[in-house]
Design a protein around this nucleic acid. Sequence first.
DNA 1: TCATGTTAGGACCGGGTGGTCCAAAGCGCA
DNA 2: TGCGCTTTGGACCACCCGGTCCTAACATGA
Lengths: 207, 207
Amino acid sequence: MSDRRTQILDAAAMLIAERGYTSTSVDDVIRGAKLSGKSHFYHYFRSKEELGYEVLNRQFERFTERGLAILREPMIDPLERLSLFIDAVVTLQAERGGRGGSPFGNLAAELADAHEGFRVRIEAVFERWASQIRSLLWEARPQLQDDVDAVRLSRFIIATLEGAVLMTRVKRDLAVLEGIAADLKRFIGTHVRDGGAVALPGARGAE
Amino acid sequence: MSDRRTQILDAAAMLIAERGYTSTSVDDVIRGAKLSGKSHFYHYFRSKEELGYEVLNRQFERFTERGLAILREPMIDPLERLSLFIDAVVTLQAERGGRGGSPFGNLAAELADAHEGFRVRIEAVFERWASQIRSLLWEARPQLQDDVDAVRLSRFIIATLEGAVLMTRVKRDLAVLEGIAADLKRFIGTHVRDGGAVALPGARGAE
DNA sequence: TCATGTTAGGACCGGGTGGTCCAAAGCGCA
DNA sequence: TGCGCTTTGGACCACCCGGTCCTAACATGA
């Protein structure tokens, strides 16, 4: 993977996060990556579509490294890992200044109905994400109530986080995301067996 | 408001829900509304932007009639109304065949960062929606725990529903939305005072 | 030295974009 | 009858879109 290629990918990722896939033109990407012209771009990518797919892949890899990795930390209690992961989502969004939202959610809203190729790839992203949470939930099973449905709960967590990021973008207020994240932790806490101490730190407290 | 005008608005609403605002061209709308040409369209709307704003308004009016209205039914217990409202969101999405998603969420994801005019209007939509839930929560206050934060809870409900609709679109599976809706009811149920009977019907049950 | 891959730069393509302008027909109503 | 709104229909604008093609200057390493 050449330097130029990743440079193009990075520029495209930024632009797509800001303005969406359709509204980001190849010329924009060329300007963003400081290429000399169209032929230079098409030397590295067969089409804009291919660019889009690879950007999505890279976004997921980055997310896997910086967010999903927490879910797998072997030395930390699984439910605390889940709490840390939710914090990481908040941090990630804070770093973006509340803008840009979730790359997956954005592409999903923009292309899920219109472009099957993107839809299946986005579905795969969410599925891999959900499966990470599911196996964490499986690990935490001794602490959880017997009737906890890991599939449903993992979907609920992802949907709420995606919705929260979207709302935060609209309101331009990170506190929205923080509040929802806290409530989400509280909800996860209700699945913990009674008698368990404060399983999810930070789940209470209005602010 | 002439017939033609609403006809254009309806056609545009459908197209925007399907393909998004940017990807819906004025020519598409003209074809959809069976107008004779561009001049005919621009006889009714000053610009595509104005069209978009009015479509957003109409979508919210429709949503107010068919969804938000339930929140105000005076003869039904407030918490049951909330449960019925969540059911209505599921029904609304089912009618669309899982496609199209939430008009507000879609526009938000597409334009929140790029187009301030739309951003503030979408923010207003969510705010009016949240305020409806807030006043319902205020009404239900005797049944709720003392520390329930209506602002936060209303945001949580909206974010989760928006996220759920988005996930459902990506997975093309209405069961996703149904599951999340059930869990959301369960979460709301945890805010009800102890000793209260089954406040939210349908909140339990895995399927 | 030759080949290969990279960078540079520009001309060009068909088609779509939001938007304007104009001329003329059809219309209901006073 | 005549006024004013609606409808029709098309020409036209500058610009942007994804994508192709071509030429030529580079660097690198075999």
